[in-house]
Computed example of a mutant assay.
Amino acid sequence: MDEELERIRRKKLEEMKKMANEPNADYPDSPVKLTDGTVGDVVARYPLVIVDCWAEWCGPCRMIAPVIEELAKEMKGKVVFAKLNVDENMQTSSKYGIMAIPTMLVFKNGELIDQMVGAYPKTTLTNKIQKYL
């Protein structure tokens, strides 16, 4: 019995060491799908969250989607990217006054600090996000 407990303790200790060495393990490497019910939890959980407000019918939104996917991978551990379908989540869209899409909402430490409206090229978007890091 003591040997079994010791084995479990060692295994748990190794897992904890691994997590300590990988502080970004909790960060997603692809955009998180948000809803009216989850947006508050996600923006409160991570220090910097970029929410892409989009709709299925929006051409510029579809153009910027692959850029958001790439940046989510490249900036994992620094920024969490999320997607909010404005047609399906009107409460959040109304709360933040989304009048045009795509709109990126920038949350730092749970607070909305900026909005970026339009489909930016990857380099421009990256430069804009860098100032929040």
Rank of each mutant, 00 (worst) to 15 (best):
E14Y: 11
T103C: 03
I129L: 07
V106K: 06
L105F: 07
N24F: 10
P23D: 05
A20D: 01
C58N: 09
V32T: 10
D41L: 01
R7C: 09
K78T: 05
C61E: 15
G110T: 11
N127P: 09
D87S: 00
K122T: 10
G110V: 07
V86N: 09
K131A: 12
M16N: 02
M116C: 07
R10E: 15
K83E: 08
A55S: 13
M116W: 14
K11M: 09
N21H: 11
D29L: 01
A72K: 04
L5M: 14
K17I: 12
V32K: 13
L13T: 01
K17C: 01
E56D: 14
P31M: 06
V49H: 03
M90R: 13
K17N: 10
N24C: 03
G110C: 10
E4Q: 13
D87V: 06
D26W: 11
R7W: 14
A82H: 07
I113E: 02
A119N: 09
N109L: 07
L112W: 10
V49P: 03
L5H: 08
E88Y: 04
L48V: 10
V32M: 14
F107Q: 07
L125W: 08
A119L: 02
Y120R: 04
V51G: 09
V80D: 01
V79R: 08
Y132Q: 06
E56K: 15
E111W: 07
T123N: 15
D87A: 04
R9S: 05
V43A: 01
R9Y: 14
P23N: 08
K95W: 04
L133H: 04
V32C: 06
C58L: 08
G118A: 03
A25L: 15
D26H: 10
K83A: 08
T123E: 13
K18H: 14
K76N: 01
L84T: 02
Y96S: 01
M1F: 05
N89I: 04
V79W: 08
G59K: 15
K128I: 14
G118E: 13
A20Q: 02
C53Q: 05
M1H: 05
Y96A: 07
E4K: 11
D29T: 07
N127V: 00
C53I: 13
T126V: 05
A25F: 10
I8C: 00
S93H: 06
N89Y: 06
A65Y: 12
P102C: 08
D52C: 00
N89W: 06
E15W: 02
I68A: 06
L13S: 05
S30H: 13
P121H: 03
C58G: 10
E22N: 14
M90P: 00
T35R: 06
G77K: 09
I50A: 02
M99P: 01
D41A: 09
Y132H: 15
Y46C: 00
E14P: 00
S94R: 13
I113G: 00
V67W: 15
M116L: 11
V32H: 08
D87W: 05
P60F: 15
K73F: 06
M99G: 01
D36T: 05
D26V: 15
M19Y: 06
E56S: 12
L105W: 11
P102H: 06
A119R: 04
S94Y: 13
N85G: 05
P121W: 05
G59I: 15
K11D: 05
E111D: 11
M75T: 04
I98A: 00
T92F: 14
D2N: 08
N85Y: 02
